[in-house]
């Protein structure tokens, strides 16, 4: 329990620092957000007026404190670009991205774990070699290119997918899910290969270990030794790997959202950057940071749960 509190405290502190760093960083940027919003034709007065409105003329410390006092209450200001509260803007899109990430996660692990075990079982045989070459090739395809290939195949050749027909999950969950299948596959495919390879190597490493020899010497058949002993041990590194995988999925979704015109936080981020919409970017950075940190925490808990060596160890 104390451990959980400690981790939560460190979450808050890390978020605080990240917000401070982003704030300072954006302050140092040469460009002017007011200028970007109004375009180059704007007069000096117009720009000055907007700067005043956005509070850009106040000193940095004052602006930060103001922002912070509002942020802790959940108010991240208004978007420069859309002129609506940032929270409202992010809410819907965050649901989309999280849904996409969740679907990708399922699409990765459901096939990857049995495939990985199979690859370990057939190690050295032709099945293993084919899967090895295949996974190398799939891993080499950049997610956005994979997205384009999938759109081509399903959208135009098979005609069962209409690119651009995105629906928010908050509007129509079923339609939205149907639309997100392809983007999720585009994210998942290279990662399936990765997880599969990782699990295979992990299982092989475990089967070479001494305790497997001991299990066989105590009368286990090789198959029982694999399932009763090696599998559980092999899953431990896979769990750590999976927390990293979630970051990778988010990375992938930022790019793939662009390919499939999915209205998620990735797309919002990209338009935000080109429009210098700092309230949006700051809020998004913190939002993703919180998710990543929480996922890492959960990963740590899971790790402790499966590995008794860590359970009784103080941190």
């Amino acid at each position: 329990m104390k451990y959980v509190l400690k981790r939560l405290a460190s979450l808050v502190i890390t978020l605080f620092f990240i917000s401070l760093v982003t704030f300072i960083a954006f302050d140092l940027i040469p460009g002017d957000s007011a200028l970007t919003s109004l375009g180059t034709n704007a007069t000096e007065e117009q720009i000055e007026k907007l700067r005043e409105e956005r509070g850009l003329n106040d000193p940095l410390s004052q602006r930060y404190l103001k922002w912070l006092s509002r942020a802790v209450r959940g108010d991240f200001g208004d978007s420069y670009q859309y002129k609506i509260p940032v929270t409202e803007l992010i809410g819907k899109r965050a649901v989309t991205t999280l849904l996409l990430a969740l679907m990708s996660f399922i699409f990765i692990y459901v096939p990857a774990i049995p495939l990985g075990m199979l690859a370990a079982k057939f190690t050295g045989k032709w099945q293993d070699r084919i899967s090895h070459v295949g996974s190398q090739v799939i891993m080499a395809i950049p997610p956005f290119f994979m997205g384009i290939l999938l759109t081509a195949l399903f959208g135009v050749v098979l005609n069962i997918f209409q690119p651009g027909n995105f629906v928010f999950p908050t509007d129509d969950l079923f339609k939205s899910l149907r639309y997100l299948v392809l983007p999720a596959i585009a994210i998942a495919l290279p990662k399936i290969a990765m997880v599969m390879k990782y699990l295979r190597n992990s299982v092989l490493e475990e089967t070479g270990k001494d305790y497997i020899k001991n299990a066989v010497a105590s009368g286990s058949t090789k198959k029982t030794a694999l399932w009763r002993h090696a599998f559980k041990n092999a899953m431990i590194p896979v769990i750590t790997f999976s927390t990293m995988m979630i970051g990778e999925i988010l990375s992938g979704s930022i790019v793939v959202e662009q390919v499939f015109s999915v209205q998620g936080i990735g797309r919002l981020m990209i338009t935000g950057i080109s429009m210098r919409d700092y309230p949006v970017i700051t809020a998004l950075v913190l939002y993703v940071a919180a998710i990543v940190i929480i996922i890492n925490m959960l990963g740590d808990f899971a790790y402790r749960l499966v590995d008794p060596r860590l359970r009784r160890q103080k941190l």
Binding site: K209, D210, Y211, K213, N214, A215, H229, K232, N233, I236, V306, D307, P308, R309
Partner: peptide
């Protein structure tokens, strides 16, 4: 040290 399964 290595001949016992660490998670059992």
């Amino acid at each position: 040290m290595t001949f016992l399964d660490p998670v059992m």
